[in-house]
Simulated assay, not measured.
Amino acid sequence: MTQRVLILGGRGRIGSSVAQDISKYTQANIVFTGRTTAIETQQDKSLQYLALDLAETEKLREAISNTNLVVHCAGPFHYRDTTVLQICIEQGVNYVDVSDHRSYTSKVLALHDRAVEKGVTAVINTGIFPGISNSMVRQCVEQFDVPEEIHLSYVVSSSGGAGVTVMRTTFLGLQNPFEALINGQWEKVKPYTGRETVSFPQPYGKSGVYWFDMPETFTLPKAFPTVKSVITKFGSVPDFYNHLTWIAANIFPKSWIQNPGGVEFLAQVSHFMTGVTDNLRGIGVAIRSEVRGIKNGETAIYCSTLVHENTSVAAGYGTGSIAQLLLAGRLNKPGVYTVEEALSTGLFEEMMQSRGLNINQQWL
Results as ranks from 00 to 15, higher is better:
Phe144Val: 11
Asn332Pro: 00
Gly161Arg: 02
Asn176Arg: 14
Arg102Ala: 11
His151Trp: 00
Ile182Arg: 15
Lys222Phe: 00
Glu309Asn: 15
Gly316Gln: 12
Pro177Gln: 05
Arg168Trp: 13
Phe178Gln: 06
Gly275Tyr: 11
Glu142Phe: 03
Ile89Lys: 07
His101Trp: 01
Phe171Tyr: 15
Gly235Arg: 07
Gly293Ser: 08
Leu60Lys: 02
Gly184Phe: 11
Thr36Ile: 07
Ile7Gln: 03
Tyr79His: 15
Tyr192Leu: 13
Tyr49Ser: 04
Gly75Gln: 08
Arg355His: 10
Ala122Cys: 09
Thr305Asp: 13
Phe144Asp: 12
Val18Asn: 09
Arg330Ala: 09
Gln43Trp: 04
Ile89Leu: 10
Pro191Glu: 12
Asp213Glu: 13
Asp100Phe: 01
Val70Leu: 09
Asn29Gln: 12
Gln202Lys: 10
Thr36Trp: 02
Gln86Met: 07
Ile39Asn: 09
Ala115His: 01
Ala323Asp: 09
Gly297Met: 12
Gly161Val: 00
Pro238Tyr: 09
Val70Asn: 10
Tyr317Cys: 12
Gln202Leu: 12
Gly275Asp: 09
Phe348Thr: 11
Ile132Phe: 08
Pro201Glu: 01
Gln48Asp: 00
Leu327Asn: 09
Gln42Glu: 15
Lys254Tyr: 04
Gly184Arg: 04
Glu40Met: 11
Met1Val: 06
Leu60Asp: 05
Val5Arg: 00
Lys206Ala: 12
Ile359Asp: 06
Arg61Ile: 06
Ser133Phe: 03
Pro334Asn: 09
Gly194Ser: 11
Gln202Thr: 02
Glu309Phe: 07
Ser157Trp: 00
Val116Ser: 07
Glu216Arg: 06
Met1Glu: 03
Ser65Asn: 05
